[in-house]
Computed example of a mutant assay.
Amino acid sequence: MTDRRLTPNSGRIAHVSLKGQVNVPLTTGEPARVAAPVTDLCPEPGALRDRQVIFGAEVTVIDRQDGWSFLRAEADGYCGWVVDGALTAPAPATHLVHVPATHVYREASIKRGEVMRLSLGSRLPVLEEDAKFARIAEGYVPIQHLRPITRNDTDPVAVAERLLGTPYLWGGNSRDGIDCSGLVQMALTLCGRSCPGDSDLQRAAFGDFLPAEEPPRRGDLFFWKGHVAMACDADTLIHANGHTMNVAYESITACLARIAAAGEGPFYGVKRPA
């Protein structure tokens, strides 16, 4: 069965990659990028979100309808509808926000007011920079909050730890709110590793489960039905979870026991992303 989340077909128009598989008109799509700090990616116009996309994300617009755009997010292939006002013309990203969050200021001064807040992972087309600020089309960002897009982080756990305390949000993908799979995707993506958006897709993407007797290592992924967490070491994990309603550390032993006692779904095992 075709996975709707990864199928670039609005039901009216489909991407040319589906040639021979669908009976609707085909298009190569229109490149765009996300200009809102964060916006919901929905299965239908006006529906509840599946996931979110954040500032600077590169997308391909496949269909438009009543103020909504059907698109494919190029980072992970996730498809859905976003409001048209969240999109703008494409521009190559040069820098990435590498702190939990930052502000875009009206002028090159922290005292002149901000125009928006951007999350960790936001991708910025910087037009010019000096010792204090990087200028983008929307304003000025503190230069110390950015890193070049070409330089990756090296430790996914350290990336996840930047979001400690972030509120839990189903389908969330930003500092404003994030869920378990969004946290894992952020951690791996900023380290240059491809990662799907949902926990079931992540479970399918990362090879075989480790033998039950093998102790977990930093960066290993724990999978339950509908949930994923990342090991910090052999005893502790980090996850965005509905128990504490934020990104938090938890004892591996306590977490396994708590979820089993709640009957929230089976524990599948541990995987080690290559």
Rank of each mutant, 00 (worst) to 15 (best):
D233F: 04
T253K: 12
D198A: 10
I62Q: 03
G242D: 11
K132Y: 06
V59Q: 00
Q52R: 13
A75R: 14
A32C: 10
R258Q: 13
N173Q: 14
D235F: 03
A89I: 06
A35D: 09
D200G: 02
Y249T: 03
R4K: 15
S194M: 09
V126S: 06
T102N: 11
T236A: 06
N152G: 01
L188I: 03
E30F: 04
E138Y: 02
P266C: 08
A254I: 05
D220R: 07
S109C: 12
C255Q: 10
K271Y: 01
P156K: 04
R49E: 06
A101C: 13
A75F: 11
V228S: 03
L169K: 07
T94M: 06
A134C: 11
G113F: 09
A131S: 08
I178G: 00
T88G: 14
Q21P: 00
G77H: 01
A137P: 00
A101K: 13
F55K: 04
D153C: 10
D179R: 02
V16Q: 11
R217Y: 05
R218C: 09
D76P: 00
L124A: 05
E264Y: 08
A205D: 11
G197Q: 07
G219N: 04
N173H: 08
L210C: 07
R175E: 09
R106D: 08
A91Y: 02
D50R: 15
P266A: 15
S119Q: 03
A35H: 07
S174T: 04
A89V: 12
G121A: 11
W170V: 01
K271I: 03
A254N: 13
A204Q: 15
F206Y: 15
D63L: 04
A261S: 14
C191E: 10
H243Q: 10
D235T: 15
A131H: 06
T60G: 05
G139W: 03
H239D: 13
V22K: 06
S17Q: 09
V82G: 00
R217M: 11
E161C: 08
G139Y: 04
A257I: 05
E107K: 13
Y168V: 01
A131P: 00
K111S: 14
